[in-house]
Design a protein around this nucleic acid. Structure first.
Lengths: 114, 114
DNA sequence: GGCTGCTATGACCATAGCCGCATATCCCGG
DNA sequence: CCGGGATATGCGGCTATGGTCATAGCAGCC
């Protein structure tokens, strides 16, 4: 399964868009923000407190995520409440985590065999 | 499904490993190599020809992919034949492509509605 | 309107990573 | 064991981006 697109070579544009998407997740700070927001909407102050990053940094990263549609925000008084708006990210992380786990197990048993 | 880990905040190490994995896919060159190899094993010369990149660049990228276990190689005479060794990558790409498609459709109908 | 607190942005530095050139290293075949 | 082709690696230039500081913009409240 998943074989529907096997054998197809993506166009350069698609390749670029795919890699740009993965690039968003390739930064620990952004991934952390997404994971924090996964647990529920939060305002910027909370995110700053949880991560320890500067306000400007948080703002930039959230902008990127918002432009990509991974996050959305709404005003609450003077604050902005951000919300993760893409279950796909979580699914991707779960898949990759499973893979990391498999690899560790393989390394472990390879070690025990030797 | 996939909801088993909702609400869990990854440790810094896990965050780092996840993002490192995504970083591998965040480079068009590497993603292209993976897509080319997805169609079947190839030797380095073919990859150079298909991509137009220099030999040293190809070699470096393949090294990275190999260290990550996404690719594996075996000798055939004097040449190295590389093989994509991870269906996960294709699955991830399919998921993201579906998401890109959805977004384009939304933009389209949003345009028509206006 | 002016003040206050929150968020976004411009300027800037430091670093990481891509990429090619030249060269070293390796491995097969003779 | 040696030669030649194939692959890996040291080096350097360049660009992109993470990260901070200072500051501008902006929305609400008195």
């Amino acid at each position: 399964m998943g074989a529907a697109s096997d054998g197809l070579i993506p166009t350069p544009q698609l390749l670029e868009e795919l890699s740009q998407f993965f690039r968003l997740l390739s930064e620990p700070a952004r991934l952390q923000l997404l994971c924090l927001l996964k647990t529920g909407p939060q305002d910027v102050a909370s995110l700053i407190g949880s991560t320890g990053f500067s306000q400007s940094h948080i703002s930039r990263q959230l902008s990127q995520l918002q432009r990509a549609g991974l996050v959305r925000c709404e005003r609450e008084g003077t604050r902005l409440i951000y919300t993760a708006d893409e279950p796909l990210v979580n699914d991707l992380c779960v898949l990759v985590m499973g893979r990391l786990r498999e690899r560790l197990e393989q390394q472990l048993e390879h070690l025990q065999a030797a």
